[in-house]
Design a protein around this nucleic acid. Structure first.
Lengths: 211, 211
DNA sequence: CGGGGTGATTAACAAAAGTTAATTAATGCT
DNA sequence: AGCATTAATTAACTTTTGTTAATCACCCCG
């Protein structure tokens, strides 16, 4: 039971490129078991049905959830009433409101389960105390943050350097499994275009593939 | 002389929102003077003339520069030979190659001085050792990284939620001084559009302002 | 003062994306 | 299986952007 939980936690290495797993696991190898146990004992498991909201826009919490199974999207509602999906997270990644955790302000996004989802929920403030006591945790946290930063910077670059069609093709190549798991309309807004436009892009790609 | 340098270093708080300065300065208040001196003694001042390149695409270094004066842009050259400016940094901010520092790989961007620029250059690896010895430095570093992350996430959101015209208007409102300091063509690519399109947007805005 | 060079604007046209609405396809639910 | 709902596609039209090239404006330097 304990070992099972440890494995769950360490499997979060999957969120990183395969080649980094070894490096990543090494971050945990010197952890004090008591600290790790404390962390795990703080975590509570919870389930969300598909469509259920996890964090609502305007909320201020310190929830940090490790996704065991399922998929969550963060979206905002524009003035015209339409939703725009900003990000998605799936198993072995962490789901949290950036606004809540980084900026300590009410969330501008709503986080909603797209599929039936199982979370291991931590309180970030409480976890932070354990992180600070144990340098290995601090390293791991920094590593995750740097990864998020690299991701986000790459995304900005993609908006500058690539056309919508190229961004879609790249997503198809890099994360084919994810594209298949969520509706195109969510993909579209994450790419910065409308669902109608994405549909046309898909058509163009199919036509281009012939002969 | 020593005090002067300390003030230079602490003035980097200006890169953050004014209301955060107090918080930020507090991060430094318990520093060991010996560590701070060591850090400053490691830094060397250097000058770049307008147009001069600081870090070239393909380079792998661990340079981290605090900008005392001037302005630097990071750009890449697309397949068609055109330059695309990805980011700009100005006084009291840090200029470094994300690829070099975060991902430890050759820089995909070239960093070039747009104005005559004065830098305080550190070696990141060497600085890191001092950071790790002193929790206050580590806190400060984390704070900076989180700020970069928040910035980058906000930029992604802007690409998703705003039209090019809205992004330009927001930039005008948020950073009017910066817009005036650099050519429009650099602004354009940072917004994800062409200089021609930005010119049309500017025209539209002027027209809209009448009556 | 008079080029030379660079950046900004304008024009003309092609290509892509936004918008609205209708239609088709897929999905979910009982 | 059948109905209801939601997602995706298509169409028609508008708006915006990209592209290329010409022109205009400005600055700097000799």
């Amino acid at each position: 039971m304990f070992i099972e939980n440890v494995l769950e936690i360490t499997s979060l290495a999957n969120m990183i490129d395969p080649e980094k797993i070894r490096l990543y696991l090494s971050l945990f190898k010197d952890l004090k078991l008591s600290d790790l146990m404390q962390l795990i004992s703080m975590a509570k498991t919870l389930h969300l049905a598909a469509g259920e909201t996890y964090i609502k826009e305007g909320t201020l919490t310190s929830k940090l959830a490790y996704i065991k199974k399922g998929l969550i999207r963060g979206y905002t509602v524009k003035e015209n009433g339409e939703e725009a999906t900003i990000l998605i997270r799936w198993e072995d990644q962490f789901a949290a409101s950036h606004d809540n955790i980084i900026l300590r302000r009410p969330s501008r996004l709503t986080y909603q389960a797209v599929e039936d989802t199982t979370l291991l929920e931590l309180d970030y403030d409480a976890a932070q105390k354990i992180f600070d006591k144990n340098p290995r945790f601090a390293e791991a946290r920094n590593f995750f943050i740097l990864n998020m930063l690299a991701d986000s910077l790459a995304r900005v670059e993609a908006f500058i350097l690539l056309t919508p069609e190229e961004r879609y093709k790249r997503l198809l190549k890099d994360k084919p499994a994810v594209v298949e798991r969520i509706p195109d309309k969510y993909i579209a807004t994450m790419l910065g275009i409308t669902p109608v436009s994405l549909s046309r892009i898909r058509k163009r790609i199919v036509k281009g593939k012939k002969h």
